[in-house]
């Protein structure tokens, strides 16, 4: 009996490891459901094709009722990382830090040092673009400075997937997806940070490698 439990336990763990909770929604125990939990990341050419847009989404699966109370954590920095030399080490970062109802966005700028730790000094804020964090139910507040535009606040989760049916397949309860499928993320919101920057500030031409990180102030 003990052995069976152990085998079952291991089986469930193995299956859980393969279930993907959406793009990155609720992906790991240390950040699950918290203010530093990144749900998604997008990078695309702007309406002005000289610009690149970066989107970080956090705190997935917010119901409309939960969204009105959702906030950014003032201890959590959202950092867009840009490698424009092909070594998968960031050469530039764009750092967003919330404080007292505003989102302060620094960069693109060379990081104090690459890697898991980011240091902001007292002068970091001087060149920041800042924007009022948009309240739930309000028109989007946008700030633009030095051709860099920023937004922070609740948005519809742009991610779509029949995650429920995927879970049934992984659990062995279904042999395939339904057609049509059902969007598990329909009607849910996320907390978004959107930054649009001139391509000239992040390499100008060629291919870059980008990723987003959440970092907590110590």
């Amino acid at each position: 009996m003990k052995n069976l439990k152990q085998i079952l336990g291991i089986g469930i763990l193995a299956v859980a490891g393969l279930i993907f909770v959406a793009a990155d929604h609720i992906d790991a125990p240390a950040v699950q459901g918290g203010a530093s939990d990144i749900t998604d990341f997008y990078a695309f050419q702007g309406e002005n094709t000289d610009n690149m847009v970066f989107v970080a989404n956090l705190q997935g699966l917010l119901s409309p009722a939960a969204t009105s109370a959702a906030t950014f954590d003032e201890h959590v920095m959202i950092e867009f990382n840009i490698d424009n030399t092909g070594d998968n080490i960031e050469d530039l970062v764009i750092q967003a830090v919330p404080r007292q109802g505003k989102m302060y966005v620094i960069g693109p700028v060379a990081p104090s040092s690459p890697g898991l730790s980011s240091v902001l000094d007292v002068n970091s804020v001087n060149d920041a673009v800042f924007v009022d964090i948009t309240g739930y139910g309000s028109e989007a507040r946008i700030s633009t400075k030095n051709n860099i535009s920023v937004f922070a606040g609740p948005r519809d989760d742009p991610f779509f997937m029949d995650f429920a049916q995927y879970s049934e397949i992984i659990a062995g309860n279904a042999s395939g997806f339904n057609n049509p499928g059902s969007d598990t993320f329909a009607g849910t919101n996320v907390m978004s940070v959107v930054v649009e920057v001139p391509k000239a500030l992040i390499g100008g031409t060629g291919t870059i490698n980008v990723w987003v990180e959440s970092k907590r102030r110590q």
Partner: peptide, 16 residues
């Protein structure tokens, strides 16, 4: 505001 400090990584993401 004072934004200065040391921030340590918790989550990251590249491809979906």
């Amino acid at each position: 505001p004072v934004l200065s400090g040391t921030y340590i990584q918790e989550d990251q993401m590249g491809r979906p």
